[in-house]
């Protein structure tokens, strides 16, 4: 038996036992915002209606710059996912040896765009990039009962 056959037999044995598996995966969720439609939105001119017409419904809406009289602007966020990549899963295949290891060579940060509107619902600014860069870091909410 030559070396290639032995290597193939070993690989087959490992895979059959669920020890080592290579994965190629593609995940898409949602649809990217149209670049031309986004570029056509002019800060200081475009209204909320214009932006909704051009980009469709956002994924999230947030309150923004609440004034003393209760007037508020808003922030609209669009995000999507379209990633492909290889991964490897390694597991023991034996209950006596717990645990498994997996590796995915895909990004964890989502692309997206964010639009900021003042209380007059006119576009103040628009940004495109990854959500981690576009949005401030979330803070852990205070514990129940705290003031």
């Amino acid at each position: 038996m030559n070396a290639a056959v032995r290597a193939a037999a070993l690989a087959a044995a490992l895979a059959t036992a669920g020890c080592v598996t290579a994965n190629y995966g593609h995940t898409s969720f949602g649809e990217p915002v149209d670049d031309a439609a986004f570029a056509a939105l002019v800060s200081g001119e475009a209204t909320l209606a214009d932006c909704l017409q051009a980009l469709g419904a956002p994924v999230r809406v947030f309150e923004y710059r609440v004034g003393p009289t209760g007037e508020s602007g808003m922030v609209l966020l669009w995000s999507w996912r379209d990633e492909a990549g290889w991964g490897i899963d390694v597991s023991s295949g034996d209950d006596a040896i717990p645990g498994s290891v997996s590796f995915d060579a895909v990004s964890t940060d989502l692309p997206g765009c964010v639009l900021w509107f003042g209380p007059d619902l006119r576009l103040e600014k628009a940004r495109k990039g990854t959500l981690g860069d576009l949005l401030p870091r979330r803070l852990r909410p205070s514990a129940a009962g705290e003031g």
Binding site: A22, N23, G25, F29, G30, L48, A57
Partner: peptide, 19 residues
């Protein structure tokens, strides 16, 4: 397949925001 798996996930949404 024996050594390699190929997977695809496609998710889409209907969304409506009313203000």
């Amino acid at each position: 397949l024996l050594l390699v798996n190929f997977a695809n996930q496609d998710g889409r949404s209907d969304r409506l925001w009313v203000f």
